[in-house]
């Protein structure tokens, strides 16, 4: 049920920014849709009468967005869902990849580091989107803000690997059987969570991050070809999945 509303480019931009702002402030999706629908039709009627967007939202779009946001309830269930998905996703990817390579062993530092990095990532993504939505910026500036945020966890993980070599913390080791059991539990957990969150994205990520590595390492190819093949399948596979699912979403609309 899409309503065709005729509004100016400026108003459209404001509406989209408001949606991003409210979403990254953790508001309920239905409530966001409702207020957006209302404002869209208000803007459209006001513009028909020759009023400018300033007359509606005041001089500061940011202040107006805050005013709206303050009156809406936070959707803690959705927040919890995303945070759990990202943190457990990060763990599951590591655990399953390591299971394929043999027994599991993690230092306390690694475990704490994983949780911290995931938390920092979620926090910075939400802050970044919220910031971008409140000020007028070119596409390039937006990319310039989001790029470091996306790259941040990678850099932090590298730092963690290095730190783990330098600093010694107690090591938690598991035998082969225990590792297999943990691997299976992780898989079941991943599948369960994917059903709950209604998305296959975690499973697809884990599969493309672990399976090619495992299968190709058992071939007679040179290690260089293995590495290249691995990354092509990994990034290509994930890319195709994201492309396909975005197409599906568009078709649903």
């Amino acid at each position: 049920m899409k309503n065709e509303v005729n509004i100016s480019v400026e108003s459209k931009e404001f509406i989209e920014n408001l949606r991003v702002y409210l979403f990254s402030s953790g508001k309920k999706t239905d409530e966001i849709d409702e207020i957006i629908l209302e404002l869209e039709s208000h803007l459209s009627e006001a513009e028909k009468k020759g009023k400018s967007i300033d007359k509606i939202i005041g001089k500061s779009p940011k202040e107006y967005m805050e005013m709206i946001s303050d009156e809406m309830l936070n959707d803690y269930r959705a927040w919890f869902k995303y945070i759990l998905l990202i943190i457990s996703g990060a763990f599951a990817i590591t655990i399953i990849r390591d299971v394929f390579e043999g027994a599991l062993a993690y230092s306390v530092l690694e475990i704490i580091g994983h949780i911290l990095i995931s938390a920092i990532f979620i926090f910075s993504v939400l802050k970044g989107f919220k910031y971008i939505s409140t000020i007028k910026q070119s596409l390039w500036k937006q990319v310039a803000i989001l790029f470091p945020i996306v790259m941040l966890p990678g850099a932090l993980f590298l730092g963690l690997i290095y730190l783990n070599r330098v600093v010694e913390t107690p090591l938690i080791q598991f035998g082969t059987t225990a590792s297999m059991i943990i691997g299976i539990i992780t898989m079941i957990f991943l599948i369960g969570m994917s059903i709950w969150a209604k998305t296959w994205i975690l499973i697809v990520f884990v599969a493309f991050l672990t399976l090619p590595n495992y299968i190709i390492s058992h071939t007679a190819l040179t290690s260089e070809t293995q590495l290249i093949l691995e990354s092509i399948i990994m990034f290509g596979g994930i890319g195709i999945y994201l492309w396909l699912s975005s197409k599906l979403v568009k078709r649903k609309e």
Partner: peptide, 12 residues
């Protein structure tokens, strides 16, 4: 007043 102010009020 800016017309949009009614929406936060209505939400409340």
């Amino acid at each position: 007043f800016s017309e949009g102010t009614i929406y936060p009020l209505l939400l409340r």
